[in-house]
């Protein structure tokens, strides 16, 4: 099965992001394809490397980064949602005159077209949110 995943909620606040991660990991381990994980709404906060949870808790951001590295997973953060919430990569930093970037490893910032395209090209789009 060729899946696309949409994550609509931020880390720690809401279990949706944990469920999305567990689902994505299980799908990949089960031999399925996950053609894209798209982070939208507060879900874009999954992509900040400035996250510093207590040591005895799961590190949601690193967990995504490591999963993406292992499976060459395409993890896209919506640019419009990211701009509102202060998720910034090198390009966005320069474009918007900011003095810092915070995008975590293996995430990339791109447009909503990537979400629509994922809906078209996947066999199942699975949405995790409220």
């Amino acid at each position: 099965m060729k899946f696309a995943i949409q994550v609509n909620e931020g880390p720690y606040q809401h279990q949706a992001t944990d469920s999305a991660y567990q689902f994505t990991k299980a799908a990949l381990e089960g031999g399925h394809e996950v053609m894209r994980v798209f982070f939208y709404h507060d879900g874009v906060n999954n992509g900040t490397k400035l996250t510093t949870p207590p040591q005895d808790d799961r590190n949601i951001v690193n967990r995504w980064s490591e999963l993406a590295k292992k499976y060459d997973l395409d993890m896209v953060v919506c640019v419009a949602a990211a701009q509102r919430r202060g998720i910034v990569d090198e390009g966005e930093m320069q474009r918007n005159g900011k003095d810092a970037e915070n995008i975590a490893d293996n995430f990339r910032i791109s447009g909503l077209g990537q979400l629509v395209e994922a809906g078209i090209q996947s066999e199942r789009l699975v949405v995790f949110g409220d």
Partner: peptide, 19 residues
């Protein structure tokens, strides 16, 4: 919440994909 507005943004972008 922002869901309604950000939903509308997807609809507007998605319209270009002729679905």
């Amino acid at each position: 919440t922002i869901y309604a507005w950000e939903s509308l943004e997807v609809v507007l972008i998605g319209a270009a994909f002729d679905q």
